[in-house]
């Protein structure tokens, strides 16, 4: 009796371990690395890179572009911890630096586009914001990206160039959540990328920032040497730098450097 119970128990263990093993292998390495390119791209690039990915797949039948969208810093942390990624496209050279310094990139990173900033206000501009001076108004609800993410760092550069001390009510962790609050009308104004204003649906209006104080955000891109498909990654980066790639990016409001 005891022996049969024991055997029963052991069988169960074996089958449980087998199931777990199967799950691990099927998650980890089922597809052939050569037909998949994994691209980590900053949140502000999400729409443009979706278009780039589709175009790249159309030109290279059988190849899959897998996008990993997130805040630049989060994506960087993932790569520093060894995430299997082939390409990293960041929203700032500062964020890219540790990757290059750490020898994780294949050579130096390349700036592939440039973005400019704009003031975003809710549709109809209820608080009658006219320019950067309004950001110093304590009465208004002002949001910026947190200083630790690129859009927040750029916004503060703009502010200091314009000589305005912003009365910030919230430091949003990324552009997306800043835009959500502006669209909802909870914030009277914020500073985002011009591309965001352009791609946002009717809920947001843009106000231009004068060239004299505006900041060019450099978007660097790099192939990650430890990625599972560096060849595919290099091909994708080449495509982004190509005329076709730049044209697609321009369609989303980005400027060729």
């Amino acid at each position: 009796m005891a022996a049969s119970t024991l055997r029963y128990g052991r069988l169960r263990v074996v089958s449980a371990v087998a199931v777990i093993g199967f799950l691990l292998t099927s998650c980890g390495g089922s597809s052939d690395a050569s037909d998949e390119v994994r691209v980590s791209a900053a949140s502000s690039l999400s729409l443009a890179f979706a278009a780039l990915g589709s175009a790249f797949e159309a030109l290279n039948p059988g190849v899959d572009v897998v996008l990993n969208i997130g805040g630049s810093s989060l994506l960087r942390e993932q790569i520093l911890e060894g995430a299997p990624v082939d390409v990293y496209a960041s929203a700032s050279t500062d964020t890219m630096a540790p990757i290059v310094d750490g020898g994780l990139s294949d050579g130096n990173a390349t700036v592939f586009v440039r973005g400019f900033l704009a003031i975003a206000v809710p549709a109809g501009n209820p608080a009658h914001v006219t320019g950067l001076d309004d950001f110093g108004n304590e009465e208004l609800l002002i949001g910026l990206c947190d200083v630790v993410v690129p859009c927040g760092a750029y916004a503060r550069q703009v502010m200091s160039r314009a000589g305005v001390e912003p009365a910030v009510d919230t430091n949003e962790p990324n552009v997306r959540s800043l835009l959500t609050k502006i669209e909802a009308g909870e914030l009277d104004a914020g500073i985002v990328y011009m591309t965001d204003v352009r791609s946002a649906s009717g809920g947001v209006e843009g106000i231009e920032i004068p060239d004299a104080v505006n900041v060019a955000a450099d978007y660097p891109i790099a192939v990650i040497v430890e990625g599972p498909n560096t060849v595919g990654g290099r091909a994708f980066v080449d495509f982004v730098m190509s005329g076709v790639g730049q044209e697609i990016l321009a369609g989303f409001g980005f400027v060729t450097p």
Binding site: G143, D169, P173
Partner: peptide, 17 residues
Amino acid sequence: GNLAGETQTLPLAVFVA
């Protein structure tokens, strides 16, 4: 939202950090 000293709780501080 996220403003140190106003609405920034520990998890938000962790995220920013």
